[in-house]
Design a protein around this nucleic acid. Sequence first.
DNA 1: CTGTATCCGTGTTGATACTG
DNA 2: CAGTATCAACACGGATACAG
Lengths: 229, 229
Amino acid sequence: MSLEKVTKWHGRRYADACGAALGMELLGERWALLVVRELMLGPRRFTDLRAALPGLSANVLSQRLDELEAAGVLTRRRLPPPASVQVYELTPWGLEVEPVLQALGRWAARSPHLDPTLPLSPVSMMLSLRTMFDRAAAGDARAAIGFRLDGEGFVVTVADGAVTAVRAEPETAQVAAVVTGRPTDLAAVVYGNPSTVAERTWELLRVEGDRDAFLRFTGWFALPTRIEG
Amino acid sequence: MSLEKVTKWHGRRYADACGAALGMELLGERWALLVVRELMLGPRRFTDLRAALPGLSANVLSQRLDELEAAGVLTRRRLPPPASVQVYELTPWGLEVEPVLQALGRWAARSPHLDPTLPLSPVSMMLSLRTMFDRAAAGDARAAIGFRLDGEGFVVTVADGAVTAVRAEPETAQVAAVVTGRPTDLAAVVYGNPSTVAERTWELLRVEGDRDAFLRFTGWFALPTRIEG
DNA sequence: CTGTATCCGTGTTGATACTG
DNA sequence: CAGTATCAACACGGATACAG
């Protein structure tokens, strides 16, 4: 069966020696890159992926997971009992897809068609912080902010002109503030023009702890300028 | 009709605010990224694209060109008479796809499935030099090498720790050497282990001018290490 | 609860042939 | 040269039913 899939994976080849062509064979199938994106911050279960990717049907997700496993991008692993559930996890090489995600995201963010009102998954929001971090704006500032987005916890740290974002329950002792809310609203506050972000949007987020620390934090991230369109 | 296409481009959305998702909507359709790749080094005609992308049929190419034009990635332009032919040209924003191509190519080049025996287009070969340039290996060396691949001329220049590659007829006066041959054979020589590149492969390339300069040049480019598979 | 397998309507893809 | 027309095959997405 597994061999079946490996051999079957040559359905739609480009027959092109170029690396970018091979990349599109591996990641270019519909939904494939978004599945990888959702695994970028750690292993997830089948149902987690479905929840993060509404519109992706179960049969297509199954197929993508098979193909990505055959390609060596991810592995399926059964968690040790008692939590005997299956999770999907990127391989080290799969983790290296992040620069691709970032280059693509940065490029497309300049399109007039980018629509911030569309749904945004928690992982997607956190990854965008890694992509859109503005080193010059942050300078040598330091801060750790916790997030709880749709029930999922993350900790983002800025230090030494770099940013990290990991999946973790934010402990009030370790972060300056904990922000709770929906990813879309967080994006509006972080990427919106501070003077035009509606007060109503701020009200949709709950900020516990040092609110000013989070306010400064939002200034260290910026979307690229849009092209006219 | 053109408006028709713009509005029609809503066919397969992801309904996801993430930039990477939008990027896949714009460039993720089959063949789309490879069409952009072929335009990266300057305008090309419909037939040029078909020649560079065997396996891409005329109707699909037509459709991709429409979609990419509607998205603002490329424009169609009619060359002034007498050469009154139509060419497709990337917009400034379309040119910015190159980092995506590079990130994807660099990532996929580590796959065990990369197959250097597959056909390689001249543009693809030249772009790979921009991607795989090894700044440390080049040091402060300088050189200009001309190439004639499947009849298309290019000039590649290395200077100040950077590489450029442009479409241009190589003039013997401006380059240290002119290499004539097929892209695949050039790739074998540039990216192969120098000690294991068959003498037969070298014989498939014609090197006019300073052969040693070209030999040094080949040492400034390297593929990333393959993963086990 | 966590996936997997099957059926089906629809749209996309791709080969061939053909037109301005 | 630059596409359009037609048609067959297949991929996608939704629903549903089934297995561990």
